[in-house]
């Protein structure tokens, strides 16, 4: 690999992206114009820095790209980090954006008659099978997880299962689907993540990036 290979910053598509960009701007990093063009088919973008490029991928994939060193830096929620538990990812900064929580929810009518102490087995629909399993195992409950990639709230409605583990921010989606948040597994916010090997082999570049972000956060 050439010594002047640019650093790759992996950003998650969607909700978090709108919150990350202003932060980056304050750190003096701006993606090329095409980044904001919704019609663009490009996946990899230049920035106003020669040694920094941005890729835009699904939030779960940010962690994977960074863990394997395909991207050296990324922004990922701790929900994703908990799910993968990649040892090669360091999460040195809390960016204090993308706040929400990872929770267990169930239909309102179930809450009334349910006694959680009697559980030995639950079936849950979730994007986070690992987190859900660990969470329930900690209280001695075996969780059978049905992995879904979206529209989790539909699962109890259509009888796929009775409980879900999903991100909750305002609770509006849950409410609209007759679900109630019964337990918070973790508070979630977005973190700056870096690849462990990149931090060792390119300490000045990667360390410099972390410091720049830290300075923006300190100023806020």
């Amino acid at each position: 690999m050439a010594a002047n290979e640019p650093l790759i910053l992996a950003l998650p598509k969607g909700r978090i992206l709108d919150e990350v960009l202003p932060l980056l701007k304050q750190a003096g990093i701006e993606p090329e114009a095409e980044f904001d063009d919704p019609k663009s088919r490009k996946l990899r973008f230049r920035t106003n820095h020669d040694n920094l490029e941005i890729i835009r991928v699904r939030s779960f994939d940010v962690a994977t790209f960074v863990a394997f060193g395909a991207a050296q830096i990324g922004v990922a929620g701790n929900d994703v980090l908990m799910e993968f538990d990649y040892p090669e990812i360091h999460a040195p900064l809390d960016l204090k954006i993308g706040y929400c929580r990872l929770s267990v929810a169930e239909p309102a009518e179930l809450v009334a008659k349910d006694d959680p102490t009697r559980w030995s087995h639950v079936r849950v629909a979730t994007k986070y099978p690992h987190v859900a399993q660990t969470h329930f195992a900690r209280r001695g409950v075996q969780a059978e997880c049905i992995k879904l990639n979206g529209a989790i709230e539909l699962a109890p409605l259509l009888g796929l299962c009775r409980r879900i583990v999903d991100l909750v921010s305002t609770g509006a989606t849950l409410k609209a689907n007759g679900l109630v948040e019964v337990e918070v597994i973790a508070e979630v916010s977005s973190r700056l993540v870096v690849n462990r090997a990149a931090l060792k082999t390119r300490p000045r570049e990667v360390g410099g990036f972390i410091e720049r972000c830290q300075a923006v956060l300190d100023a806020a």
Partner: peptide, 11 residues
């Protein structure tokens, strides 16, 4: 100590 090479995944 751990030994790394730039651009090579892992130690």
């Amino acid at each position: 100590f751990a030994l790394f090479a730039k651009g090579v995944r892992g130690e």
